[in-house]
Computed example of a mutant assay.
Amino acid sequence: MRVIERTIEHPEDEGVILEYVKLTKDFAEIKEYVKHKGDTIMGYTQDNACVSIRIEDILYFETVDGNAFAYTADELYKLSGRLYQVEEDVKRSYICRASKTMLVNMDKIESVRTALNGRLYAKMENGEEILITRKYAKEIEDYFMKEDDNERV
């Protein structure tokens, strides 16, 4: 596959051009990555400072006692709104439900192992393990299986 790069003068002219015969899974992933690279969500640190968090840096989202939180490799941020609202705001193919109270960034999972009753444990990049309930385990498995799949979209 060829790659063409050009330097331009104005930031508003920046962009990526995808040329393909047919939209394959690889091109679809590149397209989604480019469209959403750098997207952020607002959150609050433990000392109530409002910060912008890059979605691709978030390991997972979780609801605890009715409050939604975003976890990165080394920080915890409180979010405004409910988990379903966060899910709508950060709709990406790599953000999946792990349980009723958790969304997980699939790109931040290092490994997955089976647990009892059809559940899974996902080891995140920071070494933390999260439980994926039986209801959502198939979606997680399918996500990892599609990476080995060479079929076209």
Rank of each mutant, 00 (worst) to 15 (best):
E32C: 06
E128C: 02
A49R: 04
Y136I: 03
I17D: 09
I140M: 14
G66Y: 04
V21N: 11
I55Y: 09
E129G: 00
K146G: 00
C50K: 15
Y71D: 03
Y77G: 07
N150A: 03
Y33K: 12
L116C: 08
G66E: 03
D39M: 14
E88T: 07
D65Y: 14
N117A: 12
L23V: 08
L18Q: 00
Y33D: 10
I8P: 01
D89Y: 02
K138I: 05
E139K: 15
Y136K: 10
D142C: 12
A68G: 10
S93W: 04
Y71T: 07
E151M: 08
M106W: 12
C96Y: 03
T133W: 00
T72I: 07
I58K: 11
N67P: 00
K31L: 12
Y60S: 02
D26C: 01
I55G: 11
T114G: 10
K22F: 03
I109W: 11
L103Y: 04
D107R: 14
E141G: 05
D65G: 01
R152F: 10
E19T: 11
S93C: 04
R97G: 02
D142I: 02
I53W: 08
R152M: 06
S93F: 08
E19L: 05
S99Q: 06
T24W: 02
I55S: 11
R6K: 13
R119V: 00
K100L: 05
L116E: 11
F61E: 04
C50M: 13
R119W: 00
L131I: 14
I130K: 04
E128K: 10
D142W: 02
Y77L: 12
Y44C: 04
G66T: 05
H10Y: 06
Y136C: 05
Y33S: 13
A49W: 01
R82W: 00
I95F: 15
Y71P: 03
K25A: 10
R54G: 10
R92A: 07
L79F: 06
S93P: 03
I41Q: 09
R152A: 03
S52R: 14
V64N: 05
Y94V: 06
R54Y: 13
L79S: 07
M42Y: 11
K108V: 01
V86Q: 04
D26S: 10
K22C: 03
G15C: 03
L131P: 02
V64W: 07
L131G: 01
I41E: 12
I55R: 08
G15K: 07
E56H: 11
V112E: 03
K78N: 05
A68L: 02
I140D: 06
Q46Y: 09
A98I: 06
T114M: 06
T133M: 05
N105L: 10
S99G: 14
F27V: 08
L79A: 12
L79R: 06
E12V: 07
V34H: 07
E128I: 09
M1R: 01
L120P: 08
V21E: 14
V104E: 09
M1I: 00
S99K: 04
Y94D: 14
K138Q: 15
E87W: 02
T40H: 07
V3T: 10
M42E: 15
K138E: 13
K22A: 09
T7L: 05
E139M: 09
